[in-house]
Design a protein around this nucleic acid. Sequence first.
RNA 1: CGGGGCGUGGCGCAGCCUGGUUAGCGCGCUAGUCUGGGGGACUAGAGGUCCCGAGUUCGAAUCUCGGCGCCCCGACCA
Length: 560
Amino acid sequence: MVRRQTELFLPTLRDDPADADATSHKLLVRAGMIRQVSAGLWSYLPAGWRVHEKVVQIIREEMDAIGGQEMSMPVIAPAELWEKTGRYSLPELFKFPDRAGRPFVLSMTHEETVTFHFSELGSYRDLPKTLYHFQTKGRDEPRPRGGLLRMREFVMKDAYSFDRDEAGLDVSFQKHAGAYGRIFERCGIEAVAVQAEPGMMGGSESIDYLAPSGSGENTLVTCENCDYAADLEVARGVPRAPTFPGPLESPAEVATPGVTTIDALAELLGIDPAATSKAMPVTMEDGRLILGLIRGDDRLEEAKLAAALGGAFRPATEAEIRVAFGADPGSLGPVGFKGEIVADETLRDGQFVAGANRTGWHLQGVEHGRDFTARLADIRQSIEGDSCPNCGGRLTFQTAIEVGHIFKLGTRYSAPLDATFLDDDGVEQTVLMGCYGIGPGRIMATAVEQRHDEHGISWPRSIAPYDAHVLSLHGTAPDVLHVAVEVAELLAAGGLEVLLDDRAQRPGEKFADADLLGVPIRITVGKKTLDDGAVDVRIRATGADDRIPRETVRTWIEEL
RNA sequence: CGGGGCGUGGCGCAGCCUGGUUAGCGCGCUAGUCUGGGGGACUAGAGGUCCCGAGUUCGAAUCUCGGCGCCCCGACCA
């Protein structure tokens, strides 16, 4: 197949779009692959869609290889299904009535719909099953961003497994984990599997796939020594040990007028900030005020605290704090507080400085178990330089894109939707489900983030929009184009997808556009190579140049 | 939803503070000439509801008020 560039809708831009920040956003727009329609709504232009569909095909092949069956479910779903699972109230869910006023939703994933279909599978003999589809998802995101990184409408491959028992679910889960590893490898991107928070999907276990990238919304924590890897939200970094002052028999009040920050407190008392504690009062949805307590030099990890509390919370207001503590924020502490306290594990042993619940005063020598009682939990946010929980090595942080996420759902959806089967004893059982999502658009953005230079994109061969880019520099020599067409057709006859730059542009512009678009192999036909029967070849990724006889181009490419 | 920023031909921007002719520049686009291996030069052109609405004023891209849109940072997630 040869595509002439004069026919292609490929509007490349010389300048970065003004409103872009992420590299992938800038380059995909400049290379003429995507265009924005509205916030979080993007069109893929022809070259961009080719990349997207190549990613889709790789995913399809790997899903089929583990026994997945492709189908297609509608984007629109009746509200009723979402009411049954309790997800109708999610703020991200697009909701709308039809002409008769009946309520519908734009599916943000398809657990409800696929589980609805499961009702036709009534026997253990039908299990296990894995069903999947590529479908547009609608999500009324509070903040779309970064081009393809976070959209309000995007295509996702979502797969659903149905098993009779935990052992079966585990097998399905592991098969998908294997497939996901192969998908990322084939797409030419680096992605790390980490334990993660199940989030809005619910369920018991999940693996997140984080791709290190210059931009992204996640932080990947990895150990320099061993293979420990985690999302920052759940990372269990071990902080350095504090230097404690001498122990006290009982807490001693110390005046700290106007001191509201840990740094100021540590400086005033001449102690290690790690030997202080910090009070983070929060209010639960039911109105209970709970005191989160962490070490002074740490930050609260809200996802961990939410997990420990079993529900969402918000920071307590100043008014709530005064009622509960009788003191201003900045002087709060656990001693004498009557509500529930959740303290970080780092406060288990040792004596810390804490707020005295008296504005302008702190307590020295506060000890857990003696001076206050708290539930201990891991609620601190790891920081770069913490030690690895497995081997003690140093932890490093990288921003990352979440390119895939797989979950064991258990009966989270099958129970409310009555997805049951009869087992071999004739007993009705609720089917166990898993769900497995992956975003082709994010894989595409990740490929750009991980493989680009100052000139543009450098696509992995497996997902490049074309296999080869033939440039015809036919300024003063009309027969150059003729030769370029011959070369392009020679390659196409060998099964390659070829983009032929047959435009009348000057050479510099053609080279610049070719670098921007990032087709892995560039073949230049020009006056210089017209008479000696050669062409110039260049590998985008390495910049390696060569001049080879025209008739050997095909074998040269095949041998790469 | 809180905080910050922006909105002027397809793209990137100036002009606005201090209201006043025909709204300007670069890129791109059309026609032509020269040029021809890393975004070339010259000539002649086309292309604009200055985000929308109201107000102030003799007069608004410019000032005031209201609204909308978009981007970035935070609370959420493939």
